[in-house]
Design a protein around this nucleic acid. Structure first.
Ligand code: ZN
Ligand code: ZN
Length: 764
DNA sequence: AGCACGCCGACT
DNA sequence: GTCGGCGTGCTC
């Protein structure tokens, strides 16, 4: 999110990969939270075989660990060096550009290099690579024979039946023994019996590889392009192709309205790359990585596509990774982690929906995949495409700065009708109804209409955060911090409103600061209340509620949506914007109970996020014959985020929002670094936070601001207390150095956990 | 981060 | 007497 204006080559200078034959010392990092290198002697039989990027086995204390060689040299300040034990096969080396990427990430995101490498290069690979004769299981008979056999087996051997059923329903052909047993929930026995009966066969890794290449499955075949590009698409593609052919780093921002055919541009660009014999990476947000998306790429590019989903088994992941390294897979489609695909001649990276927050990893290393995509492109000297209907402010700001090249697709490729958007002014409703009701008259009417017609409705309310704001029930005024323009949160224990950004507190107001009314509520409304209001008016309506109460386990979210899709309910109430709402064929109405629930989140990006969401909803054409309707209830009908979204005026929104960010010195004009402090003991955490903040105030460079420690919004969670120290800076590398010092020199903090988040999205 | 070492309380 | 709690400190 920081955008990419910080390529500072100084941070990339270490770690030349050339192996010096004469070097006798290896400097190694391990996959542990220890930001240190350890030196080892290179034994005679490994001389010349060890260089930066190698993975080695080394004795470490009582254990033997895998580590990454950072560099080699001829000296070490450590007196009693141990010797390296082994080097893993050459095929597993980390290539220089990726290694440099890791080093940059380590210093920018303040994360030990070993942990960065761990997340780029998952350890399961080594496990499967190490036993080169790993065994796989596959069917030994054709499906019909197996099914016939299954009938004779019925009931007698439940486990064996389970195994066969599992294999039949999967699209994969080869299964690892352990993974298979675990997935089915049986032991090796059932599988072994099936092998004895010659229904299943055992295949070794080597055979699998041989068979795979013999089949010639991985040849790139030029796809047939059935879709004709329009003039805009052709113009954009020409520019991208020029950059591809000249092999230069060009960061493109592809700003295309919903339905303008961005994906087709991606596909043609990728096609060009593959034709040149190079490889490509296509990043897609996790939620959009559906089987349909996968199919779209497979149809076009066939077997050279590798898909990285989060739910792939370790074995499957390792296999995909190897396919890429061996040059069999030439395009990887995936979420964040696909960015580290081990391609030897990468030609292009595409980041679709680049404004999506899910590109930020919310655990260490807390990197932003979009920014790292730009960096990888820079290091590989290739173009990168950042596509979105609503590019992030950080991204468009880089366009204005002349750092990124803007490409526009202003028109839709189809002539589908956009949904009609109706704004309901809640202030007017309150005047007429004498009180604030959850469902306004126009919304009620429209719901009633859909229920009569047997069509479906989705209602949306972002409960997160809205529950703790101080809201006037008469005029809708929401208290915010005078200094920071951030919504204040109500804290019951102290009866005060607090700004979690600067720490300012005010006493709980009695009268509304805008209209003088005494009806200020601090509880907000939740989905249950919406459900009750709905039931009161439409007692016979079938309602599904989708929130943290009803979606307790992983798949319940998906299950609820499936139920709704199948028409098991008339109304769905959700806590997260289901932007694709109108993609449900029978949904013709999407209602936002109160836009403030996202617009007034205590987050300086709240307006931007709301604009993105509304643009998405208002831009969806829907699948049905009838163009849908979108109802937005709000007290803030004139807010730019709402007005601009409805008028499809991205430029105006950005202009205003950038101005506001500049005034308040927020990103993209400054960068934040958040230091999160966690402790069971309140005093210990408070003390650690204070120590860190005080140390930083002294050591940090001029122009860097230090705030805190402030209690986090959810100060207490799962028996732990949370604080944050917030830094505002323009020198991330320098500030990170200061943080490193502050965390190491001051007497070590016991029973306190500290983590650093650079360019954070969630700051409290 | 792990893992050993070490120093106190409660069990065989 | 020893088993086990986890505080402290080290790992090339
Ligand atoms: Zn403030
Ligand atoms: Zn008011």
């Amino acid at each position: 999110m920081a955008g990419f204006d910080y390529l500072d080559a100084n941070h990339l200078r270490t770690g030349h990969c050339c192996m010096k034959l004469s070097d006798t010392i290896a400097h190694v990092v391990f996959e542990i939270a220890l930001d240190r290198e350890f030196d080892y002697k290179i034994p005679v039989h490994l001389l010349g075989k060890v260089g930066a990027g190698c993975i080695v086995q080394a004795p470490f204390g009582e254990r033997v660990l895998h580590g990454f060689v950072v560099k080699t040299s001829n000296s070490s300040s450590f007196p009693s060096l141990k010797e390296l034990q082994d080097v893993v096969p050459e095929k597993l080396f980390i290539e220089t550009p990726l290694f440099k990427l890791a080093q940059w990430m380590s210093s920018y995101y303040a994360c030990p290099l070993g942990l960065v490498l761990k997340s780029m290069y998952p350890s399961y690979l080594r496990k499967t690579m190490r036993n080169a004769h790993a065994e796989y299981i596959s069917l030994n008979k054709n499906k019909e024979d197996v099914i016939r056999y299954m009938d004779t087996l019925r009931k007698r051997a439940k486990r064996q039946l389970d195994v066969l059923e599992y294999i039949l329903q999967k699209r994969e052909v080869f299964f690892e023994m352990d993974a298979l047993c675990a997935a089915v929930g049986c032991d090796n026995n059932a599988v072994e019996r099936l092998i004895k009966k010659e229904l299943l066969a055992r295949i070794t890794e080597d055979e699998l590889v041989k068979r795979d290449s013999r089949l010639d499955r991985y040849k790139y075949v030029t796809p047939i392009n059935s879709i004709t590009l329009n003039l805009d698409q052709q113009r954009v593609l020409n520019q991208i192709e020029a950059a591809l052919d000249s092999r230069e780093f060009v960061p493109f921002v592809l700003h295309g309205v919903t339905g303008s055919g961005k994906t087709e541009v991606y596909i043609r660009s990728i096609q060009r790359v593959l034709e040149r014999g190079q490889q490509a990476i296509m990043l897609i947000p996790e939620i959009s990585l559906t089987p349909q998306t996968e199919e779209r790429f497979r149809k076009r590019f066939g077997n050279v596509v590798s898909v990285f989903h989060s739910r792939l088994s370790d074995g499957a992941r390792a296999r995909e990774w190897k396919k890429m390294r061996d040059g069999k897979a030439k395009l990887v489609v995936g979420a964040r982690s696909a960015l580290f695909a081990p391609f030897s001649d990468l030609g292009l990276i595409v980041v679709d929906e680049e404004h999506e927050r899910s590109y930020k990893q919310e655990e260490s290393p807390r990197y932003h995949a979009r920014d790292i995509a730009v960096l990888r492109a820079k290091l590989s000297n290739i173009p990168v495409i950042l596509g979105s209907a609503t590019p992030a402010l950080e991204t468009i700001y880089n366009v204005y700065q002349g750092k990124y090249t803007l490409l526009k697709l202003p028109a839709r490729v189809d002539d589908r009708q956009l949904p009609e958007v109706i704004l309901v002014d809640l202030a007017k409703e309150v005047r007429e109804e004498k009180k604030w009701v959850v469902l306004s008259v126009p919304l009620k009417q429209k719901i009633s209409d859909r229920l009569d017609k047997g069509e479906q409705v989705i209602l949306f309310l972002n409960r997160r955060g809205f529950s703790s704001m101080a809201v006037c029930q008469q005029c809708g005024y929401i208290y915010e911090c005078d200094d920071c323009s951030i919504t204040l949160t109500y804290h019951k224990s102290v009866e005060r409103l607090m700004c979690h950004f600067c720490g300012k507190m005010i006493t709980k107001p009695v009268f509304c600061g805008k209209c003088g009314s005494s009806e200020i509520k601090f509880s907000g409304i939740g989905t249950q209340k919406v459900e009750r209001a709905l039931k009161a008016v439409f007692p016979e309506a079938r309602v599904l509620r989708m929130d943290s109460d009803t979606t307790t386990h992983k798949d319940s979210h998906f299950e609820l949506l499936t139920q709704f899709r199948r028409g098991k309910a008339d109304v769905l109430i959700g806590t997260q914007m289901i932007a694709k709402g109108l993609d449900f064929p029978r949904v013709t109405l999407v209602g936002t109970i109160i836009a403030e629930s996202t617009l007034c989140l205590p987050d300086f990006r709240a307006a931007e996020t709301t604009f993105q969401l509304l643009t998405q909803v208002a831009g969806r054409s829907g699948r049905g014959e009838i163009p849908g309707e979108v109802v937005i209830q709000t007290f803030m009908k004139d807010h730019p985020a709402i007005v601009c979204a409805l008028q499809h005026d991205y430029d105006r929104f950005v202009e205003g929002e950038l101005k506001a960010r500049k005034e308040l010195l927020y990103p993209p004009f400054y960068r934040f670094i958040n230091i999160i402090i966690t402790a069971k003991d309140k005093k210990k955490g408070q003390w650690a936070g204070t120590q860190i903040a005080q140390s930083l105030i002294k050591t940090v460079s001029k122009g860097t601001e230090v705030k805190g420690p402030l209690p986090s919004m959810v100060h207490r969670k799962r028996a732990h207390f949370y604080w944050h120290v917030l830094l505002k800076t323009n020198d991330v590398f320098g500030t990170n150095e200061a943080i490193k010092q502050a965390l190491s020199k001051s007497t070590r903090f016991t029973q306190v956990r500290i983590s650093v988040d650079v360019d954070p999205y969630y700051m409290w």
